[in-house]
Design a protein around this nucleic acid. Structure first.
Length: 439
RNA sequence: GGAGGGGUGGCAGAGUGGUCUAAUGCGGCGGUCUUGAAAACCGCUGUGGGCUGACGCUCACCGGGGGUUCGAAUCCCUCCCCCUCCGCCA
């Protein structure tokens, strides 16, 4: 969430930055400020009265100690009235505070000054391009055709098991998925300096609030329940991304400055309800309810936030370069950015069979927006101050779409799929063979 | 699922209604002594909020929330978490 002090002291600046998102959030500012004001005035009065009560209570203790009981009783009567007024003011302050905070949680992060202004995806500037669109001297297939022909994925039986939007990987398909996961993890651990973590896949609500998924996107998550006990419904959720648990690892902690930067890398499946999403009806792997992802998370000193963001994008790009895939990097404009982010790069890989670019990575610096929500701080060595670190997250990368780009790009005239060199040790094969007549 | 025990500062650990402004020990930081170090001694050592131009003043926090009381770490209610044993189980 945003810093209340910033809202108070630079109100117009906050309004202007929020307005660049084109989501109308700037209108909430006035109300937040009003609630904050009523909280503070009630608090100031309550605390003055509490100071008076504290000293009076001490006197009463003294009087009783000296057996001056009558004086003590009259003093008690005097203070009793104070208590009522204090309770009233405390209640006012608490109500204003929780209303203020509820509203604050609904206000997105301020876009960084370097982010292009714009309304939607059409306004996202392209930052750089790597490689070229693959061309074929035979009739190239799309990934659905390839997956069916090579029996990489059994779409029909996946749907039979769990409904549409769920995939059953089979044979080489399952092996390819697993090889990719291991390739990605090793790359980031061994070459990019990340530490591997393996988080729970079912996580508490506070994790979702911490990263800004909730309260706004509650309808997009799968809520779980313990057995038939409906009272447990909604206490835990299936993770929509490993960002949710991993970014929360150090929540409510005060890290030593020398612990920074923290760099985590985690594999997890990701579960998305995709309620109301247009594309889910599409056949194939582009938009599904469950997909695998290797996620990158960093906790860094605010001075290094943007430097580390650039490195993170490069870490994700390396994946696509090693796999010989054509991609472009775009910068999300103010109107297209995620809720918690101050600046986001998307990496889109070319999928020849689709004839489009597919988003396989989204790397964001959320600055102190999430660390403030989860009360994660670090102690600055020079003066002992507790500061909010920058929290970064990026996909390194999402698997299902990577799978699509890979098979569509590297398909061969004979129906096989050539495996890029760096992936071969993981798959223990140089090609996924074309189906034989017997199979 | 059943039974029991517990949650207090960075850590250990005392504290069952009133100088708790939380004892004591350990650790950490600074100082004295020393050629230097150790030991010893002395001092400091949590988080957040409010008010103030500032020095500062003040409030809250003993797992979370609520209650009783003039006054709660302490009494009551409730929730959460941890540990031990039993049962079931990959």
């Amino acid at each position: 969430m945003l810093d209340m002090k910033l809202l108070r002291e630079r109100t117009e600046f906050v309004r202007e930055r929020l307005a660049t998102r084109n989501a109308g959030d700037e209108t909430k500012v006035t109300e937040v400020l009003a609630l904050d004001e009523s909280r503070r005035s009630a608090l100031a009065e309550a605390e003055t009265l509490k100071a008076r009560r504290n000293s009076a209570s001490k006197e009463i203790g003294g009087l009783i100690g000296q057996k001056r009981l009558e004086e003590a009783e009259s003093k008690k009567a005097e203070v009793r009235a104070l208590g009522d007024r204090i309770a009233e003011l405390d209640k006012t302050a608490a109500q204003a505070e929780s209303a203020r905070d509820a509203l604050l949680l609904m206000i997105p992060n301020l876009p960084h000054a370097s982010v292009a202004l714009g309304k939607d995806a059409a306004d996202n500037p392209e930052i750089r391009v790597h490689g070229q669109k693959a061309t074929f001297d035979f009739k190239a297939l799309n990934h659905v055709e390839l997956c069916e022909k090579l029996r990489l994925i059994d779409f029909a039986r996946g749907a039979k098991l769990s409904g549409s939007g769920f995939l059953l990987y089979t044979g080489w398909g399952a092996r390819l998925e697993r090889a990719l996961i291991n390739f990605l993890l090793d790359l980031h651990l061994q070459e990019h300096g990340y530490t591997e973590v393996a988080p729970p896949y079912i996580i508490g609500e506070h994790c979702m609030v911490g990263v800004g998924q909730f309260p706004k996107f509650r309808d997009q998550a799968y809520a779980v329940q313990e057995g038939l006990d409906t009272s447990t419904m909604g206490k835990l959720y299936l993770l929509p991304t490993a960002e949710a648990p991993v970014a929360n690892i150090h929540r409510e902690e005060i890290l030593a400055e020398k612990q920074l930067p923290v760099r985590y890398c985690a594999y997890s499946p990701c579960f998305r309800a995709e309620a109301g999403a247009a594309g889910l009806g599409t056949r194939g792997m582009i938009r599904v309810h469950q997909f695998d992802k290797v996620e990158l998370i960093k906790v860094v000193h605010p001075d290094q936030g943007y430097e580390e963001l650039e490195k993170m994008v490069q870490n994700a790009e390396t994946v696509l370069q090693r796999l010989g895939l054509h991609y472009r990097v775009i910068n999300l404009c103010t109107g297209d950015m995620g809720f918690a982010s101050a600046k986001t790069y998307d990496i889109e890989v070319w999928a020849p069979g689709q004839g489009t670019y597919l988003e396989v990575s989204s790397c964001s610096n959320c600055e102190d927006y999430q660390s403030r929500r989860m009360n994660l701080r670090f102690k600055r060595e020079s003066d002992g101050q507790n500061l909010f670190p920058h929290l970064l997250n990026g996909s390194g990368t999402a698997l299902a779409r990577l799978f699509v780009a890979l098979v569509e790009t590297h398909q061969q005239a004979d129906g096989s799929i050539r495996i890029p060199e760096p992936l071969r040790p993981y798959l223990r094969a140089e090609v996924i063979p074309a189906p034989t007549a017997a199979a």
